[in-house]
Amino acid sequence: MDVFMKGLSKAKEGVVAAAEKTKQGVAEAAGKTKEGVLYVGSKTKEGVVHGVATVAEKTKEQVTNVGGAVVTGVTAVAQKTVEGAGSIAAATGFVKKDQLGKNEEGAPQEGILEDMPVDPDNEAYEMPSEEGYQDYEPEA
């Protein structure tokens, strides 16, 4: 019985440690998101679009440190934060509304985080759909 109880105690310690790591990862992701939003706020009209992409990228980098179902929630929060940063930029006159959601080359930025393969159960990952990809044929 002692062996059984000791095993359960060790398992509990492992769960607590994993929860603490997840909590730490979420806190880091939130900190990076805040950094990115402050970065966007300090940019001029020309830099705002690039700044919004930076927020998304920093958040995406930190999301990889967070495991399990938390990833889905962090990704949703990050996307809403990026959308909010863009709205703030438009409201303050840093950028025109028609410039939001495009990178410096004018290509749409939507789907940055949505296409990231995420499995809350950590069982399997699927690649994003290939609808947006084109076949590449090298020139002879």
Rank of each mutant, 00 (worst) to 15 (best):
H50W: 13
G68H: 12
K6A: 11
V66A: 08
E46G: 15
V55G: 01
G132W: 07
A27G: 04
I112A: 03
D135N: 12
A69H: 09
G73A: 14
G47S: 14
M127F: 12
I112K: 04
Q99W: 13
T33P: 00
G106Q: 05
E20D: 06
P108F: 05
V95A: 10
M127C: 07
T64Y: 13
N122P: 07
V15F: 02
M1G: 00
L38F: 10
A107W: 10
E46V: 07
L8S: 00
H50I: 04
P120A: 12
T59Y: 14
E28Y: 04
V48M: 15
E46A: 10
K6R: 06
T72L: 13
G67M: 14
V3M: 07
P128T: 05
I88A: 03
E28W: 03
A29D: 00
G93H: 06
E123H: 09
T92G: 08
A76M: 05
G7M: 07
E105T: 12
V66I: 15
A56Q: 05
E104M: 14
G67T: 10
E57T: 06
V82F: 12
K102H: 14
K23A: 03
A90I: 05
G36N: 14
K21G: 00
G51K: 05
D135S: 04
T92N: 08
T81E: 02
P108E: 12
E61W: 14
G36E: 03
E130T: 07
T64M: 08
K43M: 15
Y133G: 07
G47D: 11
K12H: 15
D2C: 04
V37M: 12
K32H: 08
G84Q: 12
T64I: 13
A69Y: 13
D98F: 14
E137C: 06
T54H: 09
A53Y: 13
A11D: 00
Y39C: 04
A107M: 09
Y136I: 09
L100H: 03
K97C: 13
G14K: 13
V16C: 10
G36W: 12
K102P: 13
K21L: 11
K58V: 09
D135F: 11
A91Q: 07
T64Q: 09
A17C: 05
G106E: 07
V118N: 13
P128A: 09
E114Q: 05
Y125Q: 11
T72W: 09
G67A: 10
A140R: 11
D115L: 05
D135K: 05
G47E: 04
A91T: 05
A140W: 11
